[in-house]
């Protein structure tokens, strides 16, 4: 690791003050540190070489999970993944989130890794992670995965970069209609978490989300769903049993009516696209249907319509379809 200064602000305002503006020559040389489980890897691999790290750990109030009177769950960006996994309120109300948090890395990583850090982590593509490979994510001109070894890359939403978003909690939170709370020097903004993430073809190819260099993701709010019969799950498939990033993952939330018909659904895929990939067409088409074999087959097929696999990752289509079927069956039985 290159030497850096460590700034430990005690207030959010002091943290924001420490962040340079986009036009400041120091922009890009100051990075936020939360749990450090991704950032330290980036530093050790010399993918970034900041002069300063702004350590967010001492900021008050961002390590809380709060259940509002309206049933909304507010989770601070510094809450660790292991706490989310074990928190009773999360397990009961946001099963998919608890399952996703528990599916991240190993216990050692979950004990330090934070919600905010997990949502803001950088891609795992091996070309991106290789110090010498100046790929399009690092200011180069091409995505080496596109014509290279792309077993782990995107089958949906790719181009000009074909990374997949590595977060487990992101698809779960998007399925739960979560909102992201972002603080900047000029105040706070709140947006659906779905809009927090950007495709490489939409925003900057160098980034995965809308967070500017002067902003801090402070909280995620999961609103209480309206009505009853809600249930959710997160299913992840990994190549290695002990722990690994997702080859494919499915976050599903449905509300079933008294006749066991789907009243509402949200389906989000992980590990297959540069962002948590929402399947709105499937969500709409599922309404009014019972979860049976025909529904599973129909939903699985429709969700992967338009997938464009690269040379080595067509397996992700069948894999994801199987996960969708499994998730639907699991929620029908729960």
């Amino acid at each position: 690791m290159k030497a850096f200064e460590l700034i430990q602000p005690k207030t959010l305002d002091a943290a924001l003050e420490a962040l340079p503006g986009a036009r400041d020559p120091r922009a890009g040389k100051v990075k936020l540190l939360a749990g450090g489980q991704d950032l330290l890897g980036e530093l050790k691999e010399h993918l970034i070489d900041p002069d300063q790290l702004v350590n967010l750990k001492a900021l008050p109030g961002l390590d809380r999970i709060e259940l509002g009177a309206d049933g909304a769950l507010t989770i601070g960006a510094l809450v660790t993944l292991s706490r989310i996994e074990g928190e009773a309120a999360v397990r009961e109300r946001c099963t998919a989130l608890a399952e996703a948090a528990g599916a991240v890395g190993s216990l050692q990583i979950r004990n330090l890794g934070t919600l905010g850090g997990n949502l803001c982590q950088r891609p795992r593509c091996w070309y991106y992670r290789h110090e010498q490979a100046v790929c399009i994510k690092k200011g180069g001109s091409e995505c080496f995965a596109y014509g290279g070894l792309n077993k782990y890359n995107a089958i949906l939403g790719g181009g000009p970069s074909y990374i997949v978003h590595p977060s487990d909690v992101a698809p779960a939170l998007v399925a739960l209609e979560a909102q992201a709370v972002i603080r900047g020097k000029r105040g706070e903004r709140k947006l659906p978490l779905e809009e927090f993430f950007t495709l490489p073809s939409e925003g900057s190819v160098l980034r995965e989300n809308v967070l500017s260099s002067e902003e801090i993701l402070t909280q995620v709010v999961v609103p209480a769903p309206v009505g009853s019969g809600w249930r959710s799950t997160y299913l992840k498939f990994r190549e290695r049993g002990s722990y690994d990033f997702a080859l494919s993952a499915v976050a599903l939330r449905v509300a079933l009516d008294a006749e066991q018909k789907i009243r509402d659904a949200r389906l989000v895929l992980g590990g297959v696209a540069p962002i948590p990939w929402r399947c709105e067409k499937v969500e709409k088409a599922l309404v009014g249907r019972k979860i049976d074999a025909a529904t599973c087959e129909f939903a699985a097929k429709l969700a992967l319509d338009g997938a464009e696999p690269l040379e080595h990752n067509a397996y992700k289509i069948m894999l994801t379809q199987a996960l969708i079927t499994k998730a639907l069956r699991k929620l029908a039985a729960s």
Partner: peptide, 12 residues
């Protein structure tokens, strides 16, 4: 709680 000490800054 178990953590990776290689991924923890001493100051933390």
């Amino acid at each position: 709680q178990p953590v990776y000490s290689c991924m923890t800054l001493a100051i933390d």
